[in-house]
Write a protein that binds this DNA or RNA. Structure first.
Length: 992
RNA sequence: GCGGAUGUGGCGUAAUUGGUAGCCGCGCCAGACUUAGGAUCUGGUGCCGCGAGGCGUGGGGGUUCGAGUCCCUUCAUCCGCACCA
């Protein structure tokens, strides 16, 4: 009987579904293991071959852990709120829920074909009200919490209110945007509105006027991680800065803990580093510079009716510019102070003389888009304000400049410029001819700034002679002593903007009463997404939810990362109606042991979910501070686009992409000279009716490795079997016609003149996407070779973490392996398995394989395990081995990789239960001993031999072993070894 | 600029972690079977050389009896962050 993967795979997929083979239960005396995949966004394009890569890896691991005696949780679901469904809805009027539903159905069908061992009873969908009820619930908890920096955790807002009523806010240490201090008496006298406005400055999710990334094309704001190079990550639309009233998440409260937590988890260094950069901790000090003459420069008087304390007496009030620096040691090198153009003091400081120039500069900076600003960071611009500050130690006047190299949002929006020891300050000083004052010896200031943190301080009064590190300490000490500033840690991380002006997202459960934002009471949840007539913003620019009838709630919705920040807990208890998951379930499953997914979420999902998890941890709702113990980032599978060029090699024009209906590997070819191959021409004419097109045949046939982006030496070509016939409509290759298609997938048929019929193609590797027309579907592989082949092949392609282009070149090799395995059982055409005792060699093959597979799985080296299976089956085929004692353990070992064929053969061996419930075989090291001395190496007059020995052998056993073997080995030339000395590993010194 | 990776046959890769470099697969070559081959089976295949032999893990240096693996240096490619004071 042939290996009929189609029926085998269908049958077993049905069996698994019918029997709920992979159902995970909480009652078990086995240890738990949670294997999680990053759930997909169900897009209209369906799965491509890149999606299952990580799922296959996690499935192998999950199945392996089950066989190893773990109680495994391995769920799957859908991140089903998102922009594409909404865009589609805007274009077609189709409700996004319907599109999403259809896409999910399609995804499910595709996933089922691959034979994953998911427990589908636990499926979650973030757009399902039963699910987003709890996303909203978490939002409410965040709203009702503040961050206590004394206890270093989130606490209920009631504790804060009580403290305010009792002592005011002077003693409260919190992560807050509240700037003013009030007493208990004042607090109690505040109106409700005033109190709520203050509380808003403490809440972990809060409404505030903030600079946001506004994307006009998408009509919504975006979080920092959704903006790349000044354009939106989705769609590539320009993004601008805009001041808006927005919901935000106070993730900055957790900055330090998010940083510290990285030390405790097993993630790749690159992701951890990306998060560290994103959080961007820097330690330094704040420092106040007194403005010379206070605000006497102020030359326009604002008569304020609200304020009655402004009497503009002749005495100028003291005004300070506060800066943040990591190099307080260079305080004596300050040659100017630079403010961001948006800095609040700019207006007040500027003197009459410079007012016009400053105003112009501020306007210029404001109109320069974020993108421009990023694009030409080298461009130096700035303006003197006319004002001076006083150096805190020398009392010298220091000019105050504004410049857009200083960012308003970081630190205090002002820097002390030490032009000698900071690259940007240096460039600024050179450009505007400002003084450069050396205070750390060691650099060549004629050429460039010296910003290394080593060297001795000079020209620095009390710091002179100190090393930089000591000088920093001393400077901070003195600055603090003189109350000029304070040691301080700054983070680059900003609070995350949470509201989106879109329809297809979780409604924010907030309503407004007398201008006060109030959260919905928990028993009213979920706040269900209302119906709207159109999915566009209203005419007044309100978000789509403003169109809903009788909608009295917040009109922005939550961002995509809301639902995905906690979904891994919902899987633990996905049907729960009363809690986001029961405490019992959470305490049983604890956390995710293995998380597999792409690295593109490094500063998005993977940071936000750590944040939410820490918050839930603070509330005592989850037991672990970090949600994902081990993270593996699978590489991307890239698509290969075959691009067609026309014209000469050196001056050519892209006319389209080449589409092959089947999986033919097309090398780049250069169709220039015309060659004919009679045989193929005949075939072509017989099979293709538009014979006149064949007039334009350009023929080329080339051994593939001879083509290397260069014009070919055609004189060497005589292999007509592999000829390529290029016509203006397409090309013939191996007796099939392949049409050229343009960028949009349309055939390229026009625009090609008689004289310009030279085509050539090049492969370009790029990200797989529907818009690039290079998507490869896993379905085709499943249909043609089966799911087991797809699984093995995706693993075989290379190391999991590496990005690699998709090609099907090697798939027959992997498929052949399965057929070969099948033939071990069906050598005579019928199922025959022997019950004989296996030979020593057969046992060695088996145990070697088990050992390697275990090692491979444990270090996630799935590609090598496929090779090891092939070696094993090759050896067993050579030995004509069909013994049960060998094949049965082999099938269990293989089951995680190729579950369908393993199940089928397992059943035919007479087993009643699914192979899922078998026990993974242990290997026996003693079968792996080899009796031969392999080769000699000379060392210090002695002879060393490489031996393959069992790791468990004692020194005595090795010595006896070597002595017994020695005389049979030619390397000893008949001499008897006198002494055997064992050095580390498998090397043995034999003194002759 | 800072940070993270990666460099091994024609290609994807492997190497028991310091021990005979190139396992396994693709491709290619030869043969068998076949109406045919994008099927199957057998053998060969790092490079140079008829050969003995020599050379080989991006380049250069070092440690070592021994280096793809460790150290120094340099080059190339990819990814992330980027005027963060």
């Amino acid at each position: 009987m042939e290996y009929n993967f189609k029926t085998i795979e269908q049958d077993w997929q049905k069996y698994w579904a019918d029997n709920k083979t992979f159902k995970a239960e909480e009652k078990s005396n086995k240890p738990k293991y949670y294997v999680l995949d990053m759930f997909p966004y169900p897009s209209g394009a369906g799965l491509h071959v890149g999606h299952p890569l990580g799922y296959i890896a996690s499935d192998i691991y999950a199945r392996y852990k089950r066989l190893k005696g773990f109680n495994v949780l391995h769920p799957m679901g859908y991140d089903s709120f998102g922009l594409p469904a909404e865009q589609y809805a805007i274009q077609t009027g189709q409700h996004p829920a319907i599109t999403t539903q259809q896409n999910i159905a399609r995804y499910r069908e595709q996933l089922d074909k691959i034979g994953f061992s998911f427990d589908w009873d636990r499926e979650v969908r973030t757009s399902n009200p039963d699910y987003y009820k709890w996303t909203q619930w978490i939002f409410i908890q965040l709203f009702n919490s503040w961050y206590n920096t004394n206890t270093n955790k989130a606490e209920k807002i009631e504790t804060l209110v009580a403290e305010f009523a009792k002592n005011g806010n002077a003693q409260v240490k919190a992560c807050t945007s509240q700037e003013t201090i009030f007493s208990a008496t004042e607090w109690n006298a505040f109106s409700e509105k005033e109190q709520q406005d203050i509380l808003m400055n403490y809440r972990l999710t809060y409404l505030s006027e903030a600079w946001v990334n506004w994307c006009p094309a998408l009509g919504t704001v975006l979080a920092n991680d959704e903006v790349k190079d000044g354009v939106s990550e989705r769609g590539g639309h320009p993004v601008e800065r805009k001041l808006m009233k927005q919901w935000s998440m106070r993730i900055t409260a957790y900055a330090q803990r998010l940083l510290d937590g990285l030390e405790t988890i097993d993630w790749t260094e690159s992701i951890k580093e990306a998060q560290r950069n994103w959080i961007g901790r820097s330690v330094g000090t704040s420092l106040k510079f007194k403005v010379q003459g206070g605000l006497k420069h102020r030359n326009f008087l604002v008569i304020s009716s609200e304020s009655n304390t402004n009497d503009f007496s002749e005495e100028p009030e003291d005004v300070y510019i506060e800066v943040f620096t990591t190099r307080p040691d260079t305080i004596f090198g300050v040659s100017f102070v630079t403010l961001a153009p948006e800095h609040e003091l700019v207006n007040e400081l500027t003197t009459n003389e410079y007012k016009q120039a400053v105003d112009e500069y501020v306007l210029y900076a404001k109109n320069r888009s974020e993108r421009e600003r990023q694009a030409d960071v080298k461009k130096i611009t700035g303006q003197f304000t006319g004002a001076y500050v006083v150096h805190p130690f020398t009392n010298e006047p220091i000019p105050v400049w504004i410049g857009d190299y200083v960012l308003a949002g970081y630190g205090t929006g002002a820097v002390m410029a030490v032009s000698a020891h900071d690259t940007r300050d240096y460039a600024f000083a050179k450009y505007f001819n400002l003084p450069i004052k050396e205070v750390v010896a060691g650099g060549d200031l004629e050429k460039e700034a010296y910003d290394a943190k080593e060297g001795k301080l000079v020209n620095s009064d009390f710091l002179n002679g100190l090393e930089v590190k000591e000088a920093i300490k001393k400077a901070i000490a003195i600055i603090e002593e003189k109350s000029l500033g304070k040691g301080k840690t700054n983070f680059r991380l900003r609070d995350a903007v949470f509201g989106r002006q879109r329809y297809w997202g979780e409604p924010i459960p907030v309503y407004f009463e007398n201008g006060i934002a109030k959260v919905l009471s928990e028993d009213k949840l979920p706040l269900v997404l209302p119906e709207v007539d159109k999915y566009l913003p209203t005419e007044d620019g309100e978000p789509p939810l403003a169109r809903a009838k009788d909608w009295t709630f917040e009109t922005t919705t939550m961002p995509g990362w809301a639902g995905s920040s906690w979904y891994f807990y919902r899987y633990m208890n996905s049907q729960n109606k009363n809690e986001f998951a029961s405490q019992q379930s959470i305490n049983y499953w604890q956390d995710v042991d293995l998380y597999i997914g792409g690295s593109e979420h490094a500063t998005g999902h993977l940071l936000y979910s750590r944040f939410w998890n820490k918050f839930l941890f603070d509330l005592g709702l989850v037991p672990k501070e970090e949600p994902f113990k081990k993270l593996i980032n699978q590489g991307m599978i890239l698509g290969t686009s075959e691009k067609i060029y026309r014209g000469n090699y050196n001056s050519s024009q892209l006319v389209g992409k080449l589409f092959c209906e089947k999986d033919i590997y097309m090398p780049g070819f250069f169709a220039k000279n015309i060659y004919y191959s009679a045989k193929n021409i005949e075939f072509a004419k017989a099979n293709y009716t538009k014979i006149d097109e064949l007039e334009h045949l350009s023929v080329l046939n080339v051994p593939i490795q001879n083509v290397k982006n260069s014009v070919l030496d055609i004189s060497k070509i005589d292999d007509y079997q592999n000829s390529i016939f290029a016509t203006k409509y397409g090309f013939w290759y191996k007796n099939e016609f392949h049409i050229y298609k343009g960028i949009n997938g349309e055939p390229v048929i026009d625009n090609i003149s008689e004289t310009d019929k030279n085509f050539y193609t090049f492969q370009e590797v790029e990200k797989m996407s529907k818009s690039k027309w290079n998507v490869e579907s896993p379905d085709d592989i499943c249909d043609k070779f089966g799911a087991d082949t797809l699984r093995l092949y995706e693993m075989f392609l290379g190391p999991l973490e590496l990005s690699k282009p998709w090609n099907t070149n090697g798939i027959t090799g992997v498929h052949g392996f399965l057929k070969k395995l099948w033939r071990l059982f069906y050598a005579s055409g019928e199922f025959v398995v022997s019950n004989d005792e296996p030979t020593k060699a057969e046992l060695k093959t088996l145990h070697k394989t088990i050992k390697k597979i275990v090692e491979d799985i444990e270090r996630f080296s799935f590609n090598t395990s496929v090779s090891n299976f092939m070696i094993c089956v090759n050896e067993l085929t050579d030995a004509k081995c069909n013994k049960r004692a060998i094949l049965e353990p082999l099938l269990i070992t293989l089951a995680p990789y190729a579950p369908h064929i393993a199940e089928e053969l397992w059943k035919q061996l007479g087993n009643k239960e699914s192979i899922t419930f078998a026990t993974f075989p242990a290997f026996n090291e003693s079968y792996l001993v080899d009796d031969t001395i392999n080769y000699p190496v000379s060392f210090n007059g002695k002879t060393r031999f490489m031996l393959e020995l069992a790791a468990t052998m004692t020194a005595k056993e090795i010595e006896d072993h070597v002595m017994a073997l020695a005389d049979t080995q030619k390397y000893l030339e008949g001499k008897t070894p006198k002494k055997v000395i064992i050095v580390p590993k498998k090397i043995v010194n034999i003194v002759v």
